[in-house]
Write a protein that binds this DNA or RNA. Structure first.
Lengths: 259, 259
DNA sequence: CGGTCGCTTGATAATCGTCAATTGATGTGG
DNA sequence: CCACATCAATTGACGATTATCAAGCGACCG
């Protein structure tokens, strides 16, 4: 992890790593203040740990490029990925209440982030309380996402989970104004499996199967979505994971033909 | 749902429903302000819906007594309980970002709550910004809990899930200073199953089994925890759900003997 | 008193995890 | 530069966990 401190007298210069990565509805003066509060940029390569679960909560991090996984660690060493974070997302807020980080944050790819110390954040909040509003908005949004992840983990079959994940990622990219029909999974099959509550093998089989059906093209971690409708059919629960080639009752094969 | 408006000139009187239900670290003047902002108390009976998912976000609710389930609804009508809320907890915050509630909130038992309109909340925030800090703290805490629920849903077996749930509820009551070794589940087996990502039948079997082992006493929805250690053994993954009586390899029966 | 609802318990089956073997890609050291 | 080790991914066979289906029972309510 390489740290590049940003000298105070240099923080208002352009170009600045925060540029374009802060929420669009931030007013100009506040954006300026926040930008000036960035104390350093950090460069991480794949697998490097940004924060460890349980460590004192001192900083918030803004993803500039790359991606991260948030890993929750059980007492017995089990672990599960509870969220992924991409460019423009804020990381660390779940540690605010207890003043300790609640997850590990680990880079999925070579990544660049901005670091904000909580002290600086709180001093801005003192001058302009609308920032706190933005933070609350972000926390609320994260909470709604976590609840949706719970829904996925608790009520969906393996096929529905994958379909849900792919469609959500597509939508997320669409809303960010980026190319959304072809994107790179930054994570391994195992990491995606952890996030979705499935085994690596199940992920692999489902992706292979989707490719056979011509619904997506899979090349290593590059995904291309060829047709959305069969994915939506999977999401609606119309399809189950076939053990090999199909010898199933017609009812279950119906949605398969959509592919 | 019975609504009891609290006339403005009456809000500073004692006793007030908010008394004792606000965070302990709220300073006196702020507590006073918040108490005076409560616009009504609402009385709900079991099964009544306080808010519907998707409706405009207008109020925050503080549970005074009873309990609630937060139900996330899928597009196709599937539903899953994503959290339970008991006395002293705030409900509705996940709707702040989108300005729409993200879940249904439904009473698990006859319940009493205080209603705060967001307009009133925001006016207090204008006068004393430490309230916003408290809200952010609460959101952060909720986020950490949701992430832990994800961990449970994604990485635990049925036995671990139940053990985790019971031990967490016990700890929650302990920290609230209430009797914690004997408590009432306000929810049905089916509701608990929904929350834990299990079927009603699995819940029933596991509770029966725990009772046979003498670990807990179960009487309808009343739970008494007789010994914690076997529960912790279950949580650590030492035990699996036996299909009938046991004819298992010794390794798997080891922790069972702890009971 | 009949009916619904919540719960229990058993039998059966399906989804998905585990284990294993193989391949290709990547990187490292001789 | 090649051999070797390691890691991610694929695919198949098998089995376990847990859902589903079904029947029965007690409690509560109208």
């Amino acid at each position: 992890m390489k740290r590049h401190p940003i000298p105070a007298h240099f923080r208002s210069h352009h170009p600045h790593p925060c540029d374009g990565n802060l929420p669009a509805d931030l007013n100009a003066v506040l954006r300026q203040r926040v930008t000036e509060a960035a104390e350093a940029t950090l460069e991480l390569s794949r697998g490097e740990t940004l924060v460890h679960s349980g460590m004192p909560f001192k900083h918030l991090y803004l993803v500039v490029s790359g991606g991260f996984k948030a890993v929750e660690i059980g007492e017995d060493g089990q672990s599960q990925i509870v969220s992924f974070h991409y460019a423009r997302e804020l990381m660390g807020l779940s540690g605010f209440a207890q003043q300790r980080y609640t997850t590990d944050l680990i880079a999925l790819a070579p990544s660049l982030i901005c670091e904000f110390s909580m002290a600086a954040v709180e001093s801005i909040v003192g001058a302009d309380r609308s920032l706190l509003n933005h933070l609350l908005t972000y926390a609320s949004e994260s909470l709604a996402r976590a609840e949706h992840d719970q829904f996925r983990l608790g009520s969906m079959s393996a096929t529905q989970k994958i379909a849900s994940f792919l469609l959500h990622r597509q939508e997320q990219l669409r809303q960010a104004g980026e190319k959304c029909d072809q994107f790179e999974l930054l994570m391994t099959r195992e990491e995606l499996g952890s996030y979705l509550g499935l085994s690596m093998e199940t992920i692999s089989r489902l992706l292979s199967h989707l490719q056979e059906l011509g619904v997506v093209r899979v090349d290593k971690r590059l995904i291309e979505i060829l047709s959305e409708d069969p994915l939506r059919a999977w999401l609606d629960g119309a399809v189950t994971l076939p053990t090999s080639s199909c010898h199933k009752p017609a009812a279950k094969r119906a949605a398969l033909k959509l592919a």
